[in-house]
């Protein structure tokens, strides 16, 4: 299970790197990248929980959760970018 642990720990690091950048950065785009990387970290933890070695069948539940999470994440990203764009337009007007 060492492989699973390596990736799970990587997920933890990615999550906290994302949190750190969300707290430190101020403009929208870097914060959005940070939140997406946060999400990637959580997803990586889920998927490493599903991995049970190369010979055993994986646990499909976390995979499905991550697929759901991915679609939610891109929806939120699209909404944030649309809002940001409208704000830019208003600043120009």
């Amino acid at each position: 299970m060492t492989q699973a642990l390596i990736y799970a720990l990587t997920g933890a690091v990615l999550f906290m790197l994302g949190v750190r950048a969300t707290l430190l950065r101020e403009s929208l785009l870097p914060r959005l990248l940070a939140l997406n990387i946060c999400g990637a970290g959580v997803f990586l933890i889920f998927v490493s929980l599903a991995y049970r070695g190369d010979s055993l069948p994986v646990d499909p539940v976390p995979h499905a959760l991550v697929l759901t999470g991915l679609v939610v994440a891109i929806s939120a990203t699209a909404l944030a970018l649309a809002l940001n764009r409208r704000l830019r337009e208003m600043a120009d007007e």
């Binding site: 999550f15 949190v19 969300t22 946060c38 939120a76 944030a80 809002l83």
Partner: peptide, 9 residues
């Protein structure tokens, strides 16, 4: 939205 997303994460 952004804070809510951080909360959800």
């Amino acid at each position: 939205l952004m804070l809510g997303l951080l909360g959800s994460m």
